[in-house]
Each structure stands twice: as C-alpha cells, then as structure tokens.
Design a protein around this nucleic acid. Structure first.
Length: 269
DNA sequence: AGTAGGACCTGGTGGC
DNA sequence: TGCCACCAGGTCCTAC
C-alpha cells in the first residue's frame, strides 16, 4: 500500500531517471476512469520536457516545462516500473511512456490509481486540498492539528489527508503504537504531551521507512520492481495474534472506519 | 459540520 | 478440483 515513504521512494527514482528528458511516445493499452483525458492522453504529453517529479501527500506530480503537470496516484496497486530491452505489455499494464533511452510502464491490477493531465491552475487547486507535509513541518505546528474535531478518533484524523498529508493505514497504526495511543481515542482526550508524542512518532516512522525505501506488505514495489525494507520493522501492522515487540501482549486486530486496525492492548491506552 | 458506509477494482486465500 | 465468501484499502461520493 503506497503511503508517503513508498511514494517518495518512487518519486526519487523517477526524478533521477526522468528530469530533463522529453516525452517521445505515450501508448495507452486501455481506456477507462483512470485516464480522464481519454484518447487525448496519448498525444497531449508528447514533446513536453520534464522539469521535475515532485510528491505532495501520496500524489506524484510530473512538472513539465510549459506549466502543465501529470498527476499520478498509485492508490493500492498502481506502479511505475522501468523496463529494459524488448517490451511486451503484460496483463495489467495500462500505459507506456517512452523517453530517450528510457521505457516506463504504468500498471495497476486493481485500477484504483489514476493519471491526470492538469493545467497549472488545476494542479494548484488539487494540491491545496492537502494538509501539511509531516516531514517538512515543525512538530509544534503538526501537534495543533490534533486538537479538533474533538469527537474524532485519532486514527481517523491521521488518515485524513486534509489534516495531515501522506499517512495511510500502515503508518497510522505504527505511529499510534509508538506513541502509546489507542486508535479509537477521541481527540478531546489527548493531552498536549500526547499530541506532541504522536506527531514525533509520525515523523519518526515515516522517516525510518523512507530510509528503508518503504514497506512491501502486499503489492508495493519500486520502479526497479524491488520491495521496500521496512516490513520487518513493523510493530503492529499485519501482526495480529503475534506478541508485542515491547511487552509481549498479543497484538489485536479490529475494524475502525472499515479499515483493519492493529494495536497492543497493553502499550496503547 | 461531522461521520458512516458504499463504491470502485482484482487477485489471493481459506473453508467446504 | 471447484466454488464461494472474504480480505487488502485510498479516496470520492452519498446519506444521515
């Protein structure tokens, strides 16, 4: 499940490989809701030069020299993979981008992801919807985000991209365990110290995972098809029935907001 | 204003 | 072996 660390890993690889290059060919292997531009999608990017590839929250943004952008969201199973040599589209490949010397394939088993061509104005509007970037924002500012709405569960606040950007199910569970907070805790019950601890642990877990090139719990791979290294460092996510690494209590799994939620009943209060 | 739940998707898995 | 129910979950949309 690509969250901030996984998307950031892909961003770095794409930027390294593609910044300064010009799009030569775009091929679409299927049409559908994930390509809102339809047939025009194949033509609109050809000849444009990529200035940079950025990330905001879990959104990848290809910025072109003429001000337009390609916004790409991996959602659950979307992936960009570079393919060397002869390329034959595989079953779930949906698009191909050819650059001078580089062949990049977009594939997505579940088709949740999308690629959208946006004008500068449309891009600005889309990015405005996100809350602060956790790794680039002071912890005192981040802590204030968890004051209200007071009746909201702290995990729901973590997952809300308008509150704080880039946290998904895995890192929400992990940061709550590190901070010693139950996912169901209402914001009004958090002390100033709880809030500060929480945002520090959000920063810690995201940075540690970026350093490990992300978590491959299910489908995620980077642009070389490689898995992330953070899986073995998870403390609660996917560990229901296993002992807490801190206190040996059995990790529990519940459902909160229709999401699998993992916590230690002893460490998290 | 806030929350809850469905929809979008497909492949993998476990039960019978 | 085949069939089926269920699970993975980011984000948008609707209903309350």
């Amino acid at each position: 499940m690509p969250e901030l660390p996984e998307v950031e890993t892909v961003r770095r690889q794409l930027h390294q490989a593609l910044a300064g290059r010009t799009v030569q060919t775009v091929r679409l292997f299927r049409s559908g809701r994930e390509f809102p531009a339809g047939a025009a999608f194949e033509n609109v990017l050809v000849g444009k030069k990529i200035l940079s590839i950025d990330r905001r929250a879990k959104l990848l943004v290809w910025r072109f020299a003429d001000g337009t952008a390609l916004a790409a969201h991996l959602k659950m199973t979307g992936r960009f993979v570079f393919v060397d040599g002869k390329y034959v589209p595989a079953k779930h490949d949906h698009a191909q981008f050819v650059f001078d010397g580089k062949n990049l394939v977009w594939s997505d088993v579940r088709k949740f992801g999308f690629l959208k061509v946006l004008s500068a104005d449309e891009l600005a509007t889309a990015l405005d919807a996100y809350g602060p970037e956790p790794l680039e924002t002071d912890e005192a500012i981040l802590a204030e985000l968890f004051r209200s709405p007071k009746t909201r569960a702290v995990k729901a606040a973590l997952l809300d991209q308008a509150t704080i950007a880039g946290v998904g199910n895995i890192y929400a569970d992990e940061s709550l365990h590190r901070a010693g907070l139950r996912p169901t805790r209402k914001l009004r019950t958090l002390t100033a110290d709880d809030r500060l601890r929480l945002v520090r642990e959000v920063k810690n877990v995201l940075q540690e995972s970026v350093d490990q090139k992300g978590t491959s719990a299910n489908d995620y791979v980077d642009t070389a098809g490689a898995k992330g290294g953070f899986l073995s460092l998870l403390r609660v996510y996917g560990r229901a029935g296993e002992p807490c690494r801190t206190c040996l209590t059995t990790i529990k799994r519940t459902v909160l907001g229709q999401r699998g939620t993992h916590f230690c009943p002893t460490c998290q209060r």
